[in-house]
């Protein structure tokens, strides 16, 4: 009886080890071999100034379907409040704050980052081909008593040619 119970104990421990090793390996594979990291580059506002990176809020199309979007997150709004992208393939976001901590999430997508004052958060998003229409952009970190007012809109427009081609 005793030894039979001990066997279950060992099986359970093996199972725990398998879960830890399996999950760690899968996260490492997707993170480092496939470049799927839940993170983004950051530089301080000073570094951005020195490197000559423009922090003028707005949308720039730097190539066909290649966008650069700069957002100023502040109590209690995003500037710009509306971002329109036509047939985006690759969007580089630069989000910064000059006051307190904010968050930025695009509801219905995997875009979800923290915005820390004094830093520029930079990350690249490749919108899914079927992403289309209006998306709600929210502040996801408490930033003061007007936190619930802080949102923006992202509009993705698809030309019919791309919808037919890209699927």
């Amino acid at each position: 009886m005793e030894s039979r119970e001990a066997v279950f104990e060992y099986i359970w421990i093996l199972l725990i080890v398998a879960v830890i090793v399996g999950l760690s390996a899968s996260m490492a594979y997707y993170g480092f071999a496939r470049g799927l990291n839940p993170t983004c580059e950051a530089y301080t506002l000073e570094e951005a100034r020195k490197a000559g990176i423009s922090l003028e809020p707005g949308v720039r199309e730097v190539g066909p379907g290649i966008y650069e979007v700069t957002i100023d997150a502040r109590q209690f709004t995003f500037i710009p409040r509306e971002v329109v992208l036509k047939d985006p393939n690759r969007v580089t976001f630069r989000v910064y704050s000059l006051d307190v901590i904010h968050g930025l999430s695009i509801v219905g997508t995997s875009v979800n980052i923290m915005v820390l004052p004094g830093y520029v958060a930079e990350f690249v998003w490749e919108p899914p081909k079927n992403a289309k229409g209006e998306f709600l952009v929210l502040c996801t970190e408490y930033c003061g008593i007007g936190h619930q007012l802080m949102y923006a809109k992202l509009v993705i427009e698809r030309s019919s040619a791309q919808m037919a081609g890209g699927g």
């Binding site: 760690s24 839940p38 993170t39 979800n112 980052i113 820390l116 958060a121 930079e122 990350f123």
Partner: peptide
């Protein structure tokens, strides 16, 4: 994990 400014390797280490 979604804070800017911390290298992904350090985040991964603490995930493990």
């Amino acid at each position: 994990l979604v804070d800017p400014g911390i290298n992904p390797y350090f985040k991964y280490l603490q995930t493990v």
